[in-house]
Amino acid sequence: MTKTFYRYLPVADRDRDWGLFVTTIGESRINPGTPYPPATHPGTHHFQPRQGRVLDEYQIIYISAGTGWFQSELTRRVKIVAGMVILLFPEVRHAYAPTTSVGWNEHWIGFNGETARRLMAKGFFTPGRPILPAGEEQRLLGLFDDALATTRRNPPALQQLLAGSVFNLLAMLYSGEKSGFVGESPGLGAIQEAANLMRQHPEMDVSIPQLAEKFKVGYRWFRRAFTHHTGLSPHQYLLDVRLARARELLAQTTLTTKEVAAQAGFKDEHYFSRLFHAKVGAAPGEWRERARRGLRA
């Protein structure tokens, strides 16, 4: 017996212009002994597991229960268990199925568009690594449930709402992959605590090696893991936090440039002014006037 809900969605020009559009969304509970794929699959997406298929879209497939297998022309056959996500890529032949004696629960969303292709081209996800951990499964399942509920309601701008769901799903998967790089506490905890400390106290007088020592991790590991986790080196992250604090003080207070520099963590007013101009494109005083005109407007 199979319990299935799915929709295949029309795509308008405005949906393509949005940059990301959804082609299909659904969920199935495949019970033990049930043929797979279900006979209700449309011809454009139907396949025989032995031959596989090639799609012209991306798909996120989350397996919330059961076991099975997956393989593609780029990867060997691997076992799939509950808590795994399969990411399918266009023009890559693949095949997958639940274990006949066990079955599985699958939740999927298909998508495409210029923004999706750009994310993949930048290497955020690659067809050579199509199997990802679900990470926080309750949140992931909640995102699928919300997207399915939205699809059932069929509100105006459904495609744009579902595009937001896809972005959230991809962000969760990417975050989970990055978290897996640094591992569990104390590794991941050290990175998170260090970033929180920088955001809360940008004025602190501390070097990056001292931060690593504070959180009892090696400097080289800390720098590499922090960069992998945030996309910025610890030094650049702290500079960006300090500049953000400086912009906030310039816009919301009457402090002098020297006082702003000190409270944002810069010891040298002249270095601060040069760096601010280089990064923001205007001197602190000029930026303050622009910001205040914008606030008054």
Rank of each mutant, 00 (worst) to 15 (best):
R50P: 00
E136M: 01
P90E: 09
I80H: 06
P35D: 12
I131Y: 04
Q59H: 07
V78N: 08
P35F: 06
P133M: 08
V22P: 04
L20D: 02
G113L: 07
N105T: 15
L87M: 15
P42M: 02
T34A: 14
V92Y: 07
R118I: 06
T100I: 11
Y36Q: 01
I25R: 04
P42Q: 00
P133D: 05
G135L: 01
R53M: 12
R118K: 13
H45D: 13
M120N: 09
E137P: 07
T115L: 15
T40I: 08
G128S: 13
L20P: 04
P130M: 11
E106M: 11
V92C: 06
G66R: 04
E106I: 10
I30D: 12
H94Q: 09
G113A: 04
Q48V: 12
T44L: 05
R77V: 07
V85L: 06
F21L: 03
P98S: 10
P90Q: 09
A82M: 03
G33N: 13
T126C: 12
R139N: 05
T34E: 15
T23H: 00
H41V: 00
G103E: 07
S64Q: 09
F21D: 00
V81K: 14
H94S: 03
Y36C: 05
V54G: 03
S64K: 10
N112Y: 03
W108S: 02
Y96R: 09
L88S: 04
S101E: 15
E137R: 15
G26W: 03
R129C: 09
Q138R: 14
W108F: 13
V85R: 05
I131E: 03
R53E: 08
Q51A: 10
G52M: 04
L88V: 00
S64G: 12
R117N: 14
E27T: 13
